[in-house]
């Protein structure tokens, strides 16, 4: 294999990984905060994807504005869901949370099918994103490069917010030890609502940005559920950089395996996840829980 194709495989995998990161990072933080098993996170990504595609098509919003719109719309909707549906089950059994979020998936899938239709949606990328960029060694799709840059910038921004701001410190404290944080006066419920909105908003952006790579149709939430969960499980609960590296790892691995073992490459991803979780239940990058 020559250097050029190696680089192009790496870049392709990283672009896919960035989408996984943007969608999954919120899930990692919210599950870490409340221990809430949220299987409906992918549905928020799907809603975002639709909001972005439709606002571009019907209102003629430019791509960046549509992304912003998707973020705000889904973050708002998610707060409603969080207050009405999630909040009563904070202390409930895992099983009830699983049930609720599977139900939410079904309902949102059906709602989108009824409202928009079952067919796959495509994103009309603006001209400045759809060409090729000269990297010196090779030409590569501008959009993939933009994804990689955007994902990395987002990771750094989140990391900065997490490590350097008061709210970030509270979130970290609550992820590490919820009870301790509560007894020191941190309102974990409000923190959860906030991170839930932020996480869902990011998932929405990820759904729009990733429609190119992952596609966008009503079956999206179930199709990628296992992937998002694997990224979180490998990256560790509430670990932003962990989720980032896990997403890149899985994105690249999946990209490579799909090229060389098109018939069942994902087998290895599941097997690796299985072995990893058995050896380190807290994830590859997660801290050991108490």
């Amino acid at each position: 294999m020559d250097l050029n194709s190696l680089i192009s495989i790496l870049l392709g995998g990283m672009a896919a990984g960035m989408v996984l990161f943007i969608v999954s990072v919120g899930l990692s933080v919210t599950m870490g905060l409340m221990g809430f098993v949220n299987l409906a996170h992918g549905a928020f990504a799907m809603l975002g994807g639709y909001a972005i595609v439709l606002s571009m098509r019907h209102w003629g919003l430019p791509f960046p504005a549509a992304l912003a719109f998707g973020f705000v719309a889904v973050a708002t909707v998610s707060v409603v869901f969080e207050r009405l549906l999630y909040a009563p089950l904070y202390r409930a059994r895992e099983l009830d949370q699983v049930l609720l979020t599977i139900g939410l998936n079904f309902a949102l899938i059906a709602a989108v099918t009824l409202g928009v239709g079952p067919e796959t949606q495509t994103v009309q990328l603006p001209g400045w994103l759809s060409g090729q960029t000269d990297l010196g060694l090779l030409q590569y799709r501008t959009y993939s490069l933009v994804l990689i840059v955007a994902g990395t910038v987002l990771m750094l921004a989140l990391l900065f917010g997490f490590e350097r701001t008061r709210i970030g410190a509270r979130i970290r404290a609550a992820v590490d030890n919820r009870r301790m944080a509560q007894s020191m006066g941190v309102d974990v419920g409000r923190l959860f609502t906030l991170t839930f909105a932020l996480g869902s908003g990011l998932a929405a952006v990820g759904g729009g940005l990733g429609a190119e790579i992952l596609g966008l149709d009503p079956q999206y939430p179930f199709r990628y559920l296992v992937y998002f969960l694997i990224v979180v499980a490998v990256g560790g609960l509430g670990r932003i950089s962990g989720v980032f590296f896990a997403a890149i790892l899985i994105g690249v691995l999946d990209f490579v395996l799909k090229i060389y073992f098109p018939k069942g490459g994902t087998l290895f991803i599941y097997a690796l996840t299985l072995i990893l979780l058995l050896a380190r239940p807290q994830g590859l990058f997660g801290k050991k829980g108490s």
Binding site: L100, G103, T113, L114
Partner: peptide, 17 residues
């Protein structure tokens, strides 16, 4: 099929809550 899925989803949510 779609109405069934919607009904199933709503039922699950109600049951969970």
């Amino acid at each position: 099929p779609t109405a069934w899925q919607l009904g199933l989803g709503v039922t699950l949510i109600v049951v969970a809550l």
